[in-house]
Amino acid sequence: MPDLSGKVAIVTGCASGIGAATLKRLIADGARILGTDIDAAAGAALCEEAGARFAVQDVSDRALWNGVVREAIEAFGRLDILVNNAGIVTGASIGDVDDDTWDRVIAVNLTGTMAGCRAAIAAMKDNPGGASGAIINIASTTAMAPLPTDVGYSASKGAVRVMSKSVATWCAQQGYAIRCNTVIPGATETGILNAAEEVTPGLKAAVAATSPMKRLADPAETAAAIAFLASDECPFMTGAEMLVDGGALSIHPGF
């Protein structure tokens, strides 16, 4: 298991799914955590149970990000890891998406991720001992194989994938030991997928069938990849994409 002893992390969207699994995994690996979520009740309960600190956060509110980072530093003295996990789906195709729906998914999934990267880098470059840290942005296989039924989610996750490379290379050029990588989960048993299933009945079975493993991922399987990228075991890995998709994007769709 990766050793995260002494490291401090912020995990957004921590109340359920991949976020909850990641928070628990990073704590098990030795990290101290500030978990955030827009769902105050569920987020606070999860963090209390897991032994993490909690803050209510709508990641799309850029004005809140500096305060969240400051809370982590005031509580723990530094910031080493940011997991930009919070995200939403819309279930709206290009044929029926309205402006408010489009603006909201871009604000949460893309702008919220950018604002988190910006605030985290500002803190990480001033860490005791020098600029260092790991940012892990959560995209989706829709960043490579978009859903016709959700133009906003697909577009936002595709943008997160490319933005992460820009963040990674900029940090490297500045001489900062701050890495930024992307985890690309496939179909995972989460609240987001359950919400999408309500909009598109049969979606879970269909996406599970796209993987040669013929199943959905457990959130803990994605959390394990995140923990690796958060650790010091991959210091030369930045701007990379880690697929956790059960082979779904590795096989011809005809097979």
Rank of each mutant, 00 (worst) to 15 (best):
F54P: 00
V89R: 00
I38K: 05
I33N: 01
I73H: 00
A63T: 09
D61R: 15
D37C: 10
L82Y: 04
T90N: 09
I94R: 04
G51Y: 00
A31S: 02
L82D: 02
I33A: 00
T90K: 11
G19I: 08
I73T: 07
E74W: 04
K24G: 04
R53Y: 07
L46W: 03
A52I: 08
N66W: 09
E49S: 15
V89T: 15
N85I: 08
V59R: 14
G91L: 04
A42R: 14
R32F: 06
A15C: 07
G17M: 06
L23P: 02
V83E: 03
L64W: 02
A15Q: 09
G17T: 05
T22Y: 02
L26R: 04
A52R: 07
W65V: 10
R32Q: 00
I18V: 12
A15R: 08
A92F: 12
T90H: 03
A44R: 11
T90W: 06
D61P: 00
D80Q: 05
L46Y: 03
V68D: 05
W65H: 12
C14H: 08
D98N: 14
V11N: 08
N66P: 01
E71D: 10
N85S: 02
F76C: 09
D61T: 11
T36M: 11
A20W: 12
F76H: 09
G91Y: 09
A45C: 07
R53I: 11
G87S: 15
A20C: 13
D29L: 00
G19F: 01
T12K: 11
I10K: 13
D96I: 13
W65G: 06
D80P: 11
G51N: 04
A9K: 07
A75R: 15
D58N: 14
G19C: 04
R62P: 03
G91M: 11
A20L: 13
G6S: 03
E49I: 07
G91V: 09
G13W: 01
A55I: 04
E49W: 09
A45N: 05
L34S: 01
L79I: 10
I27T: 01
A86F: 11
E48C: 11
A63W: 07
L34F: 03
G77W: 05
L4I: 05
V11Q: 01
E48F: 08
R32C: 04
I10N: 11
V56M: 01
I10F: 01
V56Q: 12
R25T: 04
G30E: 04
D37G: 00
I38W: 01
A31I: 01
A86D: 06
R62I: 14
R25H: 02
V97K: 10
A75S: 15
N66Q: 13
A41R: 13
A50P: 00
I27R: 03
A9L: 11
G6R: 08
V69R: 05
L82V: 07
A15I: 09
A20E: 13
V68K: 06
A41F: 03
A92G: 01
A63Y: 06
W65N: 09
F76I: 13
T90A: 12
E49Y: 12
T90R: 14
G91F: 08
